[in-house]
Design a protein around this nucleic acid. Structure first.
Lengths: 363, 363
DNA sequence: CTGAAAGCGCTAACAT
DNA sequence: ATGTTAGCGCTTTCAG
């Protein structure tokens, strides 16, 4: 690979002017074309600056003491040679790495990019790099990812959800680093837990619908075997209905990941099966927006003929002509708070961030 | 850090049963609690299996030759000790790493998670880990990220866009690794380029509107100084209008990132300033959906009174009661194709993936 | 304030 | 088929 790259890079170098001042090379590294700063090592910089390696290292990390004179010459040499530190070597030599692993089930649902966004912004400011892994909602895949990420010796690991395979659980416990489980507080955590109770969110949704006077309430969801948090919401939802002497008047579960199209189709089907529903609780806003679009298309009056309730508080739900009644979840905040915990000491703990019920125009 | 972690992990170990079989420790590594597999090294495994380090290494990577007998004992020892390979050390010792850097401007717009998703799925299958960086549409931030990612000695770098600061450009050229610039083919690339022409997409949108008979065409966009690709679309759009002897009949540019709310508000304002528009081209689907929602709220007839055209082909746009006329961009495919190029040899080249104009119900 | 030297854990020749 | 031996590039004592 290196040689091939060198080849293609040489082409690039030909049409390049910006490199003029950086042609120096250590000469001890084959496989890199002239003009590449990638082969320059700390030793090269130290030599060029006429100082020892350790001094150069101290200067470059502004750690320890050195004269401003040496400082200048080291910095100059580094700049002139186009030195790029090798954090792989640095990490191996020192104790801890500046890598943080983040594992999410999916990137197709904006919820997880939001989570990543929050985490990454805080991590970046603290000098960490995020290494991501996507499980596709597969716990076995998660196990493989955990082991793979752990092999990079990250400073910590952020994982969505509390459920893991036994082996994954053991690896996380034995890793010797901070583990943050996110977005769910309904269950036991391994180390730190940051999120909210999905069960409570489902409960809140049910209570809201009941308070509004709805009694023939249906549920439209997506694959619950995969999305465990959606399953917990549904569970809380049914529990609250039961407390009010009610039960789900009909349900339709699309055996696919959540999507607008799936929500639209599932609502269509449940309305065929159970035409007299007066309200529907959706597994999330994507599904709910699909339902909303169906109602718009069919001229089904909202909320008089049918009420809709979602989950997440996505922008599209809040900006719709009739803002969707839903629950805003603190996704970005969970990411941020989780990232902050990476560098914390202290015992395992649970951080609960509140969700907020949004009374839209669809209930 | 390590000590604090060790401390908190000890708490965990206490409430842990799954680790029972993995309590062995090398004993040579302080800072890790008993029961942690994180301190076990290849040396430990080799010793426990009664073989040399290199033999253990060969077995664990199934590379080279060894008897099935040694294989078994090494694997057994590794499993028993809870060995987790240290890829940091492995990377330093071998030539190339299995990390790939991916730099995107944002995670707030689903376009980039889509890109990441495509790239990550291909990279994962090839044994690579994605290290991500988010620039927040800031070229200087991108420069910092590039240098930071390069310090992890990635096998390659995927970057969104062709525009970089001079220093960033120089670093990319000198990196000696495969550089893939994504989502834009309107300009010169550094190494590999994978994407489509945003200028052509803008052109196609204009031609479509003209062919449909619209003549008073406005533009509603978001911060173009930041979103260079949206700017190129607008440029192509105006060029095509000009070729037809037309020009933009009004424009409204929200000085913020694109969003549904921004699109809604911007359309509202442009309709005040220029009430006689018969069509509007939006900088992307998020903005366009905002416009669509405004029309729905206001009872503005679509497409008779006003036609709407977006860009990206998001699900929400395609599933709306009136599917939005837009251009579907191959975001996931760009990510996939880009990831495949990481391991390719061959000279710098450009891969163009086609976009597709979707004739919805809003034009 | 600075330099020399000893590794970090692993891979990759090179022997055997 | 397996063991021995150098490093990879950097950080970190430990002397001076």
């Amino acid at each position: 690979m290196a040689d091939k790259d060198a080849l293609s890079m040489q082409d690039d170098a030909m049409r390049d002017d910006a490199l003029a001042g950086r042609r120096a090379s250590s000469g001890t590294h084959i496989g890199f074309p002239m003009g590449s700063g990638a082969g320059v090592t700390l030793t090269d910089v130290a030599r060029a600056a006429g100082v020892g390696e350790s001094t150069a290292s101290r200067v470059l990390r502004s750690h320890g003491s050195f004269s401003s004179k040496t400082r200048a010459s080291v910095l100059e040499a580094a700049a002139r040679l186009g030195y790029v530190p090798n954090r792989i070597a640095g990490t191996l030599a020192s104790t801890g790495s500046k890598l943080v692993g983040i594992i999410v089930p999916s990137l197709a649902n904006i919820v997880f990019p939001d989570l990543l966004r929050g985490a990454n912004s805080v991590l970046g400011k603290a000098g960490f790099q995020s290494v991501i892994g996507v499980t596709d909602y597969d716990l076995v895949g998660e196990e493989a990812l955990i082991s793979s990420l752990l092999s990079w010796r990250p400073a910590g690991l952020l994982v969505a959800g509390l459920e893991h395979t036994p082996r994954a659980d053991a690896m996380l416990r034995g890793a010797g680093i901070r583990i943050i489980e996110m977005l769910d507080t309904d269950g036991a955590g391994i180390d730190m837990v940051v999120g909210f109770s999905n069960r409570d969110a489902g409960r809140a949704a049910a209570r809201h619908l009941i308070a509004r006077g709805y009694r023939r309430i249906g549920y439209v969801g997506h694959d619950l075997a995969l999305d465990l948090r959606a399953a917990k919401r549904f569970e809380g939802f049914r529990a609250a209905l039961a407390e009010a002497g009610l039960q789900v008047a009909g349900q339709m579960i699309a055996p696919v990941p959540s999507s607008i199209a799936a929500g639209r189709e599932a609502l269509d089907r449940i309305l065929h099966e159970t035409p007299d529903l007066d309200a529907v609780y959706f597994s999330n806003d994507d599904m709910a927006i699909g339902g909303y679009f169906l109602c718009l298309s069919r001229g089904i009056g909202i909320p008089d003929r049918l009420a809709l309730f979602g989950h997440n508080g996505l922008e599209v739900a809040r900006c719709a002509p009739q803002p969707l009644s839903t629950i805003r979840t603190p996704r970005v905040e969970v990411g941020e708070a989780s990232a902050r915990l990476i560098s914390s000491d202290g015992p395992p703990s649970i951080v609960t961030l509140d969700f907020e019920l949004i009374e839209g125009a669809t209930t």
